[in-house]
Computed example of a mutant assay.
Amino acid sequence: MAQVHPTAIVDPKAELGENVVIGPYAVIGPNVRIGEGTSVGAHCTIEGPTTIGRDNRIYQFASLGSDPQDMKYRGEPTELRIGDRNTIREFCTFSRGTVQDTGVTVIGDDNWIMAYVHIAHDCVVGNRTILANNATLAGHVHVGDWVVIGGLTGIHQFVKIGAHAMAGFGSHVSQDIPPFMTAAGNPLAVHGLNVEGLRRRGFSRERIALLKQMHRLLYRQGLTLEQAKQQIAALPADDEQMRADIETMLGFLAQSTRGIVR
């Protein structure tokens, strides 16, 4: 059975899984589903429609599933979906989607989301990301798996950040950051490959060497983007993982709508 503090308010239309813990003065609205083993801290507010998976840790004063901060919003029944095993720290705010996009804001699994992070409407956040204190995602932002976003960093609407990339502390991100890269500053610039992060995740020396070649083609050879893409596609890849890395990069570049940071 769920453990609900006597001071918490849980709407009869909310669904709580086994071993869910709802802390003091929390407010859980209708059309909220919370999976097994998730804990919700004191004074949290969760509005629906919102679905939260299992074994999440939501700290005090978070506000999840509220109306999108979009002046076009007219009360449509949009959603917030949060996966499993996420850590969501104090004062985070996650909005539901809008009908101008898919109508759903999505946060994946195993993410470490620190205090005061804002994730706006229609954002898609992958798995195993780290969003440091006060990171702010505007609407329609897509964040790939294993991305790290530094504290006090702002992400412009519709920006995409590729898998394994890193945006440094206090950055103003108004263009797409390709996978595997480290970018920082205002104006934003790519400063190299996210080598340390890749090593921690078990990338071999051969894979990292291939990714360094991609970085050079994009940022050091004076090539146009189209020329760089052609040469990346022609890089030799000795195994399936290296071929997948090339496909990841080329797929991201093909989908970029705001243009990549160069």
Rank of each mutant, 00 (worst) to 15 (best):
V159F: 11
V195A: 07
R262C: 01
A209I: 02
E79P: 01
G154F: 06
T93N: 15
E36K: 07
E226T: 11
Y59F: 15
H142D: 12
W112S: 15
G65R: 14
D67S: 12
E47V: 10
T87A: 13
I52R: 04
I155T: 12
A138E: 13
A135S: 13
L80Y: 09
N19A: 12
H121Q: 13
F94T: 02
L211G: 08
R220P: 01
A2W: 06
T51H: 13
N111I: 14
L137Q: 10
G108T: 12
L193T: 05
V124H: 13
F180W: 05
N134L: 14
R200W: 02
Q255T: 09
R207Q: 13
H142C: 07
G222A: 07
L225A: 07
G75P: 05
A120G: 14
V4M: 05
P179A: 00
I58P: 06
A14L: 10
F91L: 13
Y25N: 13
R89A: 12
T105Y: 12
M1K: 14
S66R: 15
I208F: 01
C123R: 06
E79F: 12
R216N: 09
V261L: 08
L250I: 06
I119K: 08
V195S: 02
D67M: 14
D110Q: 14
W112T: 09
G41P: 03
L217F: 01
I82A: 07
V159P: 02
V32D: 12
A120I: 07
R57H: 10
T102V: 13
